[in-house]
Amino acid sequence: MEDGEIVELFRRREEAAVGHAAQKYGARLRAIAYGITGDGQTAEECENDTYLEAWESIPPHDPTGYLFAYLARITRHLALNACRRRSAQKRRAEFTELTAEMEECIPAPDDTAGRLEAQELGRAIDRYLRTLSEEKQIIFVRRYWYLDPVEAIARRLGVGQSKVKMTLLRCREGLREYLMKEGYDL
């Protein structure tokens, strides 16, 4: 079924929308959640909650043309929250490492003045990514959107882990500089 038809079912409040969305995108959404949480049951819960949030948010949202990305964002958000709910001991080391990496991109840590909404900051990051080559974009998004381990990114792209690590380091430095130049006060 086309995305537009599924969205239309959501808009008409027909429960079949959930079934069609699950049939079409369930496995991929679950894979995203599993990649972040590393736990099958939690991933399944995130997937199911994704449909619930989609049910509640469409309408007013109309993700025709980008339904998967819309659902995937919800799944990612839910999976990240699930990670945060875990006790510090149980938190995935990978997740902790990722947040530490992202802190390197912040020009002025913990300065609450002028704090940006995540969405606005996300748009700034998006603009920065579009200044990069496609390979760098993919490496960055795989690492910080899909939360892939470095090893998995290297395998996926057929490059060495050292290249991935170096690319990520330069991307983080570049993002930090970009945000500073653009006058973002984080």
Binding site: L80, E101, M102, L121, I138
Partner: peptide
Amino acid sequence: MRGQEMLDAVGYVGEDLILKAETAHKEKK
């Protein structure tokens, strides 16, 4: 702003970037 919030912000990059990264795959070197 902390690293976790930056991670949240990355969630809002464009749909095309998300899809491109999802399907990206290259043969080994």
